[in-house]
């Protein structure tokens, strides 16, 4: 028998909580879709600025919004190869 005590006696999670969690996820995505162009622009401009300081491939850059609790978090992932030597240009 592979049924745990929890499965036998534990209560199923309330469906209203499941509804709320599912909604939060899907609405975050909906809101992001509305701002698709904004995200592309942000991605490009961030890459432009950071290219002055780091060497990286633009395709490896990922910028996304995630929901953390009640707020949104901007996550920018820039795997860089090396720093530019800032003294050279001066």
């Amino acid at each position: 028998m592979n049924i745990s005590i929890k499965q036998l006696f534990g209560r199923r999670p309330k469906s209203s909580n499941i509804a709320k969690q599912r909604l939060k996820l899907v609405i975050t995505q909906d809101r992001m879709d509305v701002d698709d162009r904004f995200m592309t622009r942000l991605h490009n401009e961030l890459a432009e600025v950071l290219a002055k300081y780091f060497e990286f491939s633009v395709n490896s850059v990922q910028v996304s919004l995630k929901q953390k609790g009640n707020s949104y978090v901007l996550v920018a992932d820039f795997p860089y190869k090396k720093f530019h030597d800032m003294n050279v240009g001066q």
Binding site: K14, S15, S16, N17, A19, K20, L23, K24, I27, N70
Partner: peptide
Amino acid sequence: LVGNGSMMDQADVLDI
């Protein structure tokens, strides 16, 4: 339905 956990209450809806 809210009482038995089958419906979101106003706090849940407003939070979203």
